[in-house]
Design a binder for these strands. Structure first.
Lengths: 205, 205
DNA sequence: CATTTTACTAAACAGTGTTCATTATATTTG
DNA sequence: CAAATATAATGAACACTGTTTAGTAAAATG
């Protein structure tokens, strides 16, 4: 009975086809201007077909947001080879910011838009992809603390603070709230801010 | 000719009536679930009437977001009497966080939702209300730097970092991205984070 | 009072997410 | 192989959304 296995495979391929089309359209014209009908048209299926594979828009958005987290994780993984946790932490920050500006619509779905988390709550599921990435940060911070490379503080507090700081910069930029600063200066200011923050948290010998 | 003055006054009253209804509905059911038709129904006018006073939804959203900034400014003003800029900075942070959680939908429109800033760009206007509030922060930070109460750094970088840090915590909470932490512990963690950040930036004597 | 200006609205347009009865296709069974 | 069944896909509809426009009622003006 290889048929039901093929069917299952075809179902996954179809889910992926929809996800891929959605991701592309989000990237091309923004997720706000992308409708179910747009996605259906792109893959040459009826809008109703999408609902055979995704319960609703929130579930589809969750799928795309999950793809984003996988992409981010792939970019973070190589950094785990960096022995010095302090240097690793800094590089993680750079990677995070770069990811955000290279894939602003993924970032939006991952950390700003409500829909994906709405889906999570509806189905009482765990936020695995989000937690997986957060753990990279928390573990690195914890290692910095163990080796007394940064000033002592509760690990959760440190991780939360660093995450908040970087997300704050990124999300305020994405949502256009840094118009008091010239756009072309923002990248340099980001780096200066992150350098400054690293200096502040680093334990003085 | 007091008539045109009365007409002007009535026009302002009508704009305010719409704004008030919109604000109320946003607070009651969230801005996402509030439509122009809802607002029209609430004030017992036709939906088309709203378009005689606001060009489109973005302009209406801008109006509500402006009301939010006025409210925040009113809460910040009393703090300007605090002589010690470091203490003032800390209290500003507390006030900011409290404002965000007491008026999450205002906060959303002020710092997260795109619509109000879209309106700004459409009409090539300045973000007065946003800048007014940001100046309070920047001036306080500058004063801290002058009096050497915090570690030396470019004033803009310091203001940007502090703003990003607090906004990050608040927006990640509002958009439900802190589900790795128990909800009831978040307030205490916020305070610990802010205490920690104050300690980090404070100049050692 | 007649005329013009103003304020308002009903109805329509084009779009949205979503559901469901119906059809076409594929698989299984006699 | 043909008939019966299960699966996949869709057209059409529903209840919404923001927005525009033609037409109407009321107020201001001469």
């Amino acid at each position: 009975m290889g048929i039901i296995e093929r069917k299952e495979r075809e179902k996954q391929e179809m889910k992926n086809l929809i996800l891929e089309a959605a991701s592309r359209l989000f990237q091309e014209q923004g997720y706000e201007k992308t409708s179910i009908r747009n996605i259906a048209e792109r893959i040459e299926y009826s809008p109703a077909t999408i609902y055979l594979y995704y319960k609703d828009k929130d579930e589809l958005f969750y799928g795309v947001h999950e793809k984003g987290f996988e992409l981010l994780f792939e970019e973070m993984k190589p950094l785990m080879n960096i022995a010095d946790p302090l240097e690793r932490l800094r590089k993680m920050g750079d990677t995070y910011v770069r990811f955000a500006f290279e894939h602003p619509d993924y970032y939006d779905l991952m950390f700003i838009v409500s829909a994906p988390i709405e889906n999570l709550h509806k189905h009482n599921e765990e936020w695995d992809c989000g937690l997986q990435n957060f753990c990279l940060l928390r573990d690195t911070v914890a290692e910095c603390l163990e080796k007394q490379l940064i000033k002592p503080v509760e690990p959760d507090i440190a991780a939360m603070s660093i995450f908040s700081f970087v997300h704050g910069m990124v999300s305020l930029t994405i949502r256009n709230r840094f118009i008091m600063f010239p756009k072309e200066q923002l990248p340099k200011m980001f780096e200066a801010s992150m350098d400054n923050m690293m200096n502040l948290i680093t334990a003085s010998p």
